[in-house]
């Protein structure tokens, strides 16, 4: 099976993630779309790992998951903090900082 299949699948998932970040207003959904982008990357890495027969990219995937977990902890904390203040997770209300 040519590697292109996986490249295209992964790019497709990645772009769906990007579309999601552009289309949604809910911060949590946006964050989820970003997780989707990361998963697209993971998938591609695993495919390359198979192609090169090299475990190092699987290790990389492992680290991406680790980092994502840490990021989720911080990110959800920030979102909850924001929610406690404005009782909404709508990013469109975040425009006090414009000038």
């Amino acid at each position: 099976m040519p590697i292109q299949y996986y490249i295209f699948l992964s790019i497709a998932l990645f772009c769906i993630g990007i579309m999601g970040t552009l289309m949604r207003r809910n911060a949590i959904i946006i964050f989820m779309c970003i997780e989707l982008m990361l998963n697209a990357v993971n998938l591609l890495l695993v495919a390359f790992s198979k192609m090169f027969n090299d475990p190092s990219s699987q290790i990389f995937v492992f680290f991406i998951m680790v980092v994502a977990a840490a990021e989720v902890a911080v990110g959800l904390a920030i979102i909850v903090m924001m929610y406690r203040k404005v009782h909404s997770v709508d990013i469109n209300i975040l425009n006090r900082l414009k000038h």
Partner: peptide, 14 residues
């Protein structure tokens, strides 16, 4: 130009 293919055979790197 990567004409790499994914082999069907199972590998044990994973």
């Amino acid at each position: 130009r990567t004409h790499g293919t994914l082999e069907r055979e199972a590998t044990d790197i994973g």
